[in-house]
Design a protein around this nucleic acid. Structure first.
Lengths: 233, 233
DNA sequence: TAGATTGTTAATCGATTAACAATC
DNA sequence: TAGATTGTTAATCGATTAACAATC
């Protein structure tokens, strides 16, 4: 799992996280464990790709092959939420995508502001990795005047001055940081100030943000180390 | 994580993985669990950044803040391998980096071939995320003749024809795919044919490779979904 | 029907965490 | 010393998986 983690202790009340399950119960929602949420996200990715390849159904075994998750576990993960499969056949891909999206509460569309229009920013803006999962890059920003006005993906690069207003107008929830590590903290602060509550950090800088903001740092090298461990072991 | 996984069942003998712990015991090596390996990699990343910021020591609590791992668990993870900390003080950063590297068997240098010299490839070649963790991008390839001869990071982009020879000469272990999804399978096959055994896939294509090759697919959108779940929950 | 694959049980194993003595 | 933080225990909780009946 680009091994990943989020704040596991965020609660609606802001209370200490020690008695998490009680709070979750009090809120009436069964809280997914970190592992289940991570795995469901992975299933979703494979399903999305399988759909692109015009597959109609998929078995737990096939899903296992691409996710490296045990097939029994996949069936168990899914069966906790309903009977989504057909015995002897497998899972209908379209249906399963819908179900997992609703389990993850991500059936909707979420808007992204991307900060950084260098090579990385342009690669992100031009790719479909986010779009495939219901995210839309609504705006791209850069601090470099020379880049302002140029195109990144489908949008025109804006000045950082316009960040706050755009976040508000476009109902942007997520900020993606695609700038060099030395500039990342500054950008994070601008994003927070503009009202973004989730930050996806492509630099390897350690970001200091207020408690209520969730940061996820992309770590390809960490992922690679992890893969390497299993290769070498 | 960017949620991540590798082949958990790779064994030196190639036997079925069902009795993994027995095999591990037979090999004399205590096999790290997936969770521990993933977390150690994350600690390493934070330590590497902290070192850059000229910190000398770090406490389990500080590590927890940046990794979102429980501080007790961090201490427990580490104490399984030795007494690396000083009570009342914390962990010496340089020393801990060394220790974790040796636990993960990644103290050495590993060489990378990067395929794709578009925006993404150039971003990767120009960044230090890999270098910071002991990986070196030895060569960059592209199928587009117009890109051959241009610079990506510190190296000159080569033709795919030279892939096999370069992998051999430069002792390359890892292939990084930074091409559009539709071209990824073809590149994967070239890399495998050239002798690469670990593939890091930046496209979201589902790659079919021989069993002995380990594929890790980067999934920022999956990571983001996962972060979003905890934000919305 | 025969074959395939799900859904679910039951048992095990490992991860997680609070708590606290040890000690820097 | 006083304060901080590790290392470790003990208890709990959840993840994992083999196995198989159900059923498409």
């Amino acid at each position: 799992m680009t091994t990943s983690d989020s704040k596991p202790r965020k609660t609606a009340t802001g209370k200490r996280g020690s008695e998490g399950s009680e709070i979750a119960a009090a809120l009436g929602g069964e809280r997914l464990s970190l592992g289940v949420a991570a795995r469901l996200s992975r299933y979703l990715q494979v399903l999305t790709q399988a759909k692109k390849m015009d597959k109609q159904t998929i078995s737990s075994q096939e899903l296992a092959r691409f996710t490296h998750v045990n097939p029994t576990q996949i069936r168990r993960d899914l069966s906790g939420f309903g009977k989504f499969g057909k015995r002897g056949v497998g899972y209908n891909i379209d249906f399963l995508i819908e179900q997992i999206r609703s389990i993850l509460h991500t059936a909707g569309k979420y808007n992204i502001a991307l900060f950084g229009a260098g090579h990385l920013g342009k690669a992100i803006a031009g790719s479909e990795v986010f779009a495939d999962h219901g995210f839309e890059i609504k705006a791209v920003f850069d601090s470099d005047e020379k880049k302002i006005g140029s195109k990144a993906g489908n949008v025109v690069v804006q000045s950082a001055d316009e960040l706050k207003q755009t976040v508000l107008e476009e109902d942007i929830l997520v900020g993606v940081i695609a700038v060099p590590a030395r500039a990342a903290q500054g950008v994070a602060e601008m994003l927070v100030e503009a009202g973004v509550t989730i930050i996806f950090n492509y630099s390897d800088a350690l970001l200091e943000v207020p408690q209520e903001v969730t940061v996820h740092t992309s770590s390809p090298a960490v992922d690679l180390l992890y893969a390497l461990y299993f290769y070498l072991a």
